[in-house]
């Protein structure tokens, strides 16, 4: 591998890992609080991309504003999901998960009917040009994802460790019954967790919209990787999710560069299978997957 290719690949890995991390922490958060996984998390990501398509490409809003708008919009979708699906199926791990599988269908069809099934939406990047390092060109559009992701992860960390509701969220994840005894409303906390998970997935999709072809099915490819990340990191562990995002991000990008995207996913699955056999609770997890 040439130096320039190596640098290029490392840069791409960092970008990819950042996107994975913003998605995976949302999944881990939801899993911690509700003990439920959201199958439609990938569709939240897809919706985030469509928010940018709609507000930026169609309406002509400035790109950063469109990205920011994805946060409350998809957070709202997340909250609706909690209210309409997770809360009524509380206590039945399987039902909540399967019902969100149904939700993926609904969101895909609705978006497809609104903006065309399988039609690829090319969104023009607002940040043209690239940063040249040792013969490698890293597009600004990709590069901005890294600081944004770092900012988002830090914000979540601050929220969980220094804000009262954030601490209550951790308390709920550790012992919901005792948390309720302290006067913490579990329903409000799960609503908060789903809002964050949704908003973060929305931003991730919004950031990737100019880079990736935007289709109603774009969430499908990424959700499997996110699930692998959460298992490898250790279901409820946010730090584990971030760590695993970087491991998977690098494996995935390098494998794609060296071989192809199919081998890349296969390598991820193989890693997951290995983790499940050797350490079922994941790298930083406490709970058995």
């Amino acid at each position: 591998m040439e130096v320039s290719t190596l640098i290029q690949t490392i840069a791409n890995s960092l970008v990819q890992s950042s996107v994975y991390a913003t998605l995976a922490i949302g999944l881990a958060l939801g899993f911690g609080v509700m003990k439920m996984a959201n199958f439609a998390h990938g569709e939240f990501y897809m919706l985030g991309a469509y928010v940018v398509f709609f507000l930026y490409t169609t309406w002509g809003l400035p790109y950063p504003l469109a990205v920011l708008a994805a946060l409350p919009i998809i957070a709202l979708v997340g909250m609706l999901t909690e209210r309409l699906i997770f809360r009524p199926t509380k206590g039945n791990v399987l039902a909540g998960f399967m019902a969100t599988a149904g939700l993926t269908f609904i969101l895909q069809v609705l978006v497809g009917q609104a903006w065309g099934v399988g039609l690829m939406r090319a969104i023009e990047t607002p940040y043209k040009g690239a940063w040249e390092v040792a013969g490698a060109f890293i597009g600004w559009q990709r590069l901005i994802i890294i600081p944004v992701a770092i900012l988002m992860i830090t914000a979540l960390w601050y929220f969980l460790y220094h804000v009262k509701i954030g601490k209550a969220l951790r308390a709920c994840a550790q012992d919901p019954e005792v948390a309720a005894l302290q006067g913490i409303s579990i329903n409000k906390i799960t609503l908060t967790a789903m809002a964050i998970a949704g908003g973060y997935a929305g931003i991730a999709g919004a950031l990737m919209a100019p880079i990736q072809p935007v289709t109603p099915y774009m969430g499908h490819d990424i959700i499997i990787i996110c699930f692998i990340i959460v298992i490898v990191g250790g279901m409820e562990s946010i730090a584990g999710a971030v760590l695993a995002s970087f491991i998977l991000g690098f494996i995935h990008t390098f494998m794609t560069t060296l071989y192809d995207s199919i081998v890349a996913i296969m390598a991820g699955v193989a890693l997951m299978a290995l983790i499940l056999i050797v350490k079922p609770e994941g790298l930083l997890g406490k709970v058995k997957a």
Binding site: F31, A37, V93, L94, F97, I224, F227, I228, V230, I231, M235, G268, V269, M272, A273, L276, I277, P280, K288, A289
Partner: peptide
Amino acid sequence: LRTIGFGFFIGSFAL
């Protein structure tokens, strides 16, 4: 076989 619940769902999906 060492997983239950979600680990099984997601693991079987990935495999």
